[in-house]
Computed example of a mutant assay.
Amino acid sequence: MLGLPFTHWSLAKLKEAAEKKKIVSSIIRVILDEAKITYQNTKTWKESTDSEFEIKKKRIEALYDCPPEDGRVICVDEFGPLSLQPYRGKGWFQQRRPKRLRATYTRPHGVKHLLAALHVKTNQLYGHSSKSKKHADILRFFNVLRRRYHRSERLYIILDNFSPHHHHKVKAWAKENNVELVFTPTYASWLNRIECHFGPLRKFVLEGSDFRQHKDLASAIQAYLRWRNKNKRIHIFYL
């Protein structure tokens, strides 16, 4: 950028560069506003290389737009790993008296994972804590989902290409239990609507927390899910 070793500009650096170019620094904000330029976080993006991208995408969009009358559309994904550590965050505190969290250098308690599901029609979220996310864990969670609905209702489960999802035992279970596994295209997990719900979960449960036991973290997550399901209209989505 103008031969300077920056990846981005702060207002102070813009001001300094503008003064060297004999530009009045006080109008920098005006110029930025008129150009509709705001200070934003950069994001990564990966294009799907799936040869059947359009076919799979249209199939998932059709399930969202016109849910089948013979069943229910469920989005499934895993959230984690969840470790017992202080999570930095933001909050409202007295001036110059921010909340202090302990520092940790060893984490001997291992990790857990949240297996989560979103019922598209009712917009209800469900989750179960798990020590791992192997195919056996996925099957246990799927059995819980299957028991929530009458077996005559077909479940259309939208999920990504995580290898345990493709395990032959998982696919065999689906055929035996009136379940259709609908996989997102490669590198296109954003088509799974449950993805946008993990941001608020991370923000309102993890950020600023310091749980000492996994059971306490799991209880906090369940409490948030119950609150969220009762207050869907005021729920804020973070992508």
Results as ranks from 00 to 15, higher is better:
residue 137 D to E: 13
residue 219 S to M: 08
residue 84 L to N: 02
residue 55 I to G: 06
residue 113 H to Q: 12
residue 144 V to P: 00
residue 66 C to M: 12
residue 207 E to T: 02
residue 65 D to I: 07
residue 30 V to D: 15
residue 235 H to N: 08
residue 32 L to N: 06
residue 51 S to E: 14
residue 71 G to W: 07
residue 136 A to R: 10
residue 44 T to I: 11
residue 40 Q to G: 10
residue 230 K to G: 11
residue 62 A to Y: 04
residue 8 H to G: 13
residue 183 F to E: 00
residue 198 F to S: 08
residue 197 H to K: 07
residue 157 I to Y: 00
residue 194 I to E: 03
residue 92 W to Y: 13
residue 139 L to R: 01
residue 131 K to S: 14
residue 39 Y to V: 11
residue 42 T to G: 14
residue 10 S to V: 01
residue 189 S to V: 03
residue 191 L to T: 05
residue 96 R to H: 13
residue 92 W to I: 11
residue 14 L to S: 06
residue 26 S to M: 08
residue 142 F to L: 10
residue 13 K to P: 04
residue 64 Y to F: 07
residue 121 K to M: 09
residue 224 Y to S: 04
residue 140 R to M: 11
residue 93 F to M: 09
residue 232 K to Y: 05
residue 153 E to Q: 15
residue 83 S to T: 15
residue 207 E to F: 05
residue 226 R to W: 06
residue 98 P to K: 07
residue 52 E to N: 14
residue 60 I to G: 00
residue 51 S to N: 09
residue 201 L to G: 02
residue 99 K to E: 11
residue 33 D to N: 15
residue 199 G to T: 06
residue 216 D to M: 13
residue 173 W to E: 01
residue 152 S to V: 10
residue 176 E to S: 08
residue 201 L to I: 08
residue 83 S to Y: 11
residue 199 G to P: 00
residue 106 T to M: 07
residue 150 H to Y: 09
residue 146 R to A: 06
residue 138 I to A: 09
residue 177 N to Q: 08
residue 84 L to E: 04
residue 223 A to T: 14
residue 201 L to E: 05
residue 36 K to P: 01
residue 32 L to K: 02
residue 53 F to Q: 05
residue 59 R to P: 02
residue 112 K to P: 00
residue 236 I to T: 15
residue 8 H to F: 12
residue 204 F to I: 08
residue 48 S to N: 03
residue 47 E to I: 14
residue 81 P to E: 10
